[in-house]
Design a protein around this nucleic acid. Structure first.
Lengths: 351, 351
DNA sequence: ATCACTGGTGGGAGCGCTCCCACAGTACCT
DNA sequence: AGGTACTGTGGGAGCGCTCCCACCAGTGAT
């Protein structure tokens, strides 16, 4: 608006060259100022900045991308249909963290859904065109081919969670092991004696770790681990019902249940109610994820909270590091590139 | 993987030049094939396509953007904080429509939040850099400066809804007038005699139109319109409660209420219940938006559904037209560039 | 005085495309 | 035969940057 009078004689947007002319310096110098190089004298920098302001200069991203071979954009790839994206708070929390961390930079975030085959096809094309400098992979299944594709294209990527104990990609996970342990520890401290576990899908590494944590929690309390107390579910409400039913058949005297997800806990709650048991009086119940379900359940559900938003931030940090570090193609170790963030038990009335 | 052996001697990605050499044609010809120009013989086209497939050629977007001065990307700008984006089904429906329509093209969709001042600042910078070919504006308030900015930068834009009767931007709206009319018509046909209206914020054009439709609906039935039956609210639950309370004071014998949104209807429902009135026996209730609230209310709420997803599709169609048409800078009229899609009454138990 | 350096700078080359002009070839008129 | 109009094609120019090499002081050591 005001102050942006001179717009370059050619009518279009001003270019580096025009800024250079106006500031009485060379093209290279302007480029250096724009990119924050330290090798510019203060006087020159000031002159260039003045010219930039006067002309209302904005760098042409396409030209920069072409010359520098980078795009200043990263993609958040969601291998799920959009419906689930909106339904699960996981994604909204993640997006918030990612967005917040990214707002400190010049990087642009692209949200890409890859739920259908069509969409995956499109994504592959997109990645092949190297239209992003890096990729954030969330909620990836163990057998997904995407990580391999990214490796082949040499596109830096960070994954949320780990696909297995031998995860090869830089990753940010929450402490599922610690979360499981904390849940059991809490139940023990509340004086519960027979603690069951409704496990998630065992092909999900995080679910395995929760089981491991559950076991260790019992051992820590010098309790014997009875494998029949561990019933696998599939993270669904129906799965939770079935698992709970089975558990009740095996152990009618059970007095505590740790579910691998809030949704499963909701299923378990129904079965417990139907069997005439009160929560928490007869049976204590703990979920996982600390989702809206947990807060709105009757009674409110004790649950293990994962720091999703922080995970998003951490993923960006890692990814930006990966992108910056790729000039020296040194394939550094994974030590510092696999983070595990603590999970936290949120105690409510159900335990 | 297999078949993509030859990747260009230089090790990097193959270029147009390399494809041309391989196909035994010139650079221009390959470009023509890639861009689907009809001015290429079938034989040549086949040869080029073979070379493209063999080399696994993918066009370099940055180079194309630089040379052609276009980005093949459009932005969906959400002038709300992310929280509301996830909370309101409006956005998810819109995104679904937009995504579906866009998947037929080569266009890339960018989702940009402009809820905070910081984000708006960033957006302005982004638009000034012309990083998108066009913009979809959803949920814009009447006094938002964004449309002006876009006009000034000469970036094609389409708005959802209209800011006023004299909307200058290409727009896609739903028939708020028709929706209001249909609601009243329905209530009349159900034998209701005294029909009130809880209006939305009157600085929202769509809310005004719903009032207009309400009035016309009464006139259509040869009923007199009493303005005291129209109570303005603000689209919130609390606003709905206040408006309903006022309406009951004025007309204790009221037997039907048409609310400007489902949320307001929810507020009204509480007040009606507290006053001992039954829905629909004593008072019929109709909402607007056909949101999840409507389906889950007790009793389920009759509501006016807007075809959000279709609106998203239509917006893309319009925008792509705008983008394509901008070479001949002819400022055509707005006739064909302002769409109004029909709203539909979904009848449930509340009426 | 000569020889290193060093911080600061200018500008050529080139990124991979699109646009457009030039031109060969064929077809169809006078 | 000569014109006129296409269709199909090749390749130069140029989009606006970054990268990098060359160069010009100035400074301190020899």
């Amino acid at each position: 608006m005001a102050g942006h009078g001179a717009r370059g004689r050619s009518g279009g947007r001003p270019t580096l060259e025009e800024v250079a002319a106006r500031a009485g310096v060379g093209r290279g110098t302007v480029s250096r100022v724009i990119n924050g190089s330290p090798r510019v004298s203060d006087a020159t920098r000031a002159a260039v900045e003045a010219a930039v302001a006067e002309l209302g200069y904005v760098p042409n991203t396409a030209a920069r991308a072409l010359a520098a071979n980078r795009t200043d954009a990263i993609a958040l790839v969601v291998p799920e249909p959009e419906t689930r994206f909106f339904a699960e708070p996981y994604f909204s929390d993640m997006l918030r963290g990612v967005g917040a961390e990214l707002s400190e930079t010049e990087m642009q975030l692209l949200l890409i859904f890859a739920g259908s085959d069509r969409e995956r096809q499109r994504l592959a094309q997109y990645l092949a065109a190297h239209r992003v400098d890096g990729v954030l992979l969330v909620s990836v299944h163990a057998d997904d081919p995407l990580p391999d594709l990214l490796a082949q294209l040499e596109i830096p990527a960070v994954i949320s969670g780990r696909r297995s104990a031998e995860e090869t990609l830089p990753s940010v996970d929450s402490d599922n092991y610690g979360g499981g342990r904390a849940a059991v520890e809490h139940l023990v401290s509340r004086g519960r004696s027979r603690i069951g576990h409704l496990a998630g899908r065992m092909d999900v590494y995080g679910a395995q770790r929760r089981v491991d944590g559950y076991r260790q929690g019992l051992r820590d309390a010098d309790r014997e681990v009875d494998d029949r107390l561990i019933v696998p579910g599939d993270f669904t409400e129906e799965g939770g019902r079935r698992a709970m039913t089975l558990l009740l058949e095996r152990f009618p005297d059970i007095d505590a249940v740790f579910a691998g997800s809030d949704v499963m806990a909701a299923g378990a709650r129904q079965v417990l109610r139907e069997s005439g048991r009160r929560i928490p009086d007869d049976v204590a119940l703990i979920g996982y994820d600390d989702s809206a379900i947990a807060r709105h359940m009757d009674p409110p559900l004790t649950s293990v909270r994962q720091p999703i938003e922080e995970m998003g931030r951490a993923m960006i940090d890692l990814l930006l590091g990966e992108i910056a570090d790729r000039r020296p193609v040194a394939s550094r170790g994974l030590e510092k590139r696999q983070l595990v963030l603590p999970a936290e038990l949120v105690v409510r009335a159900s335990s």
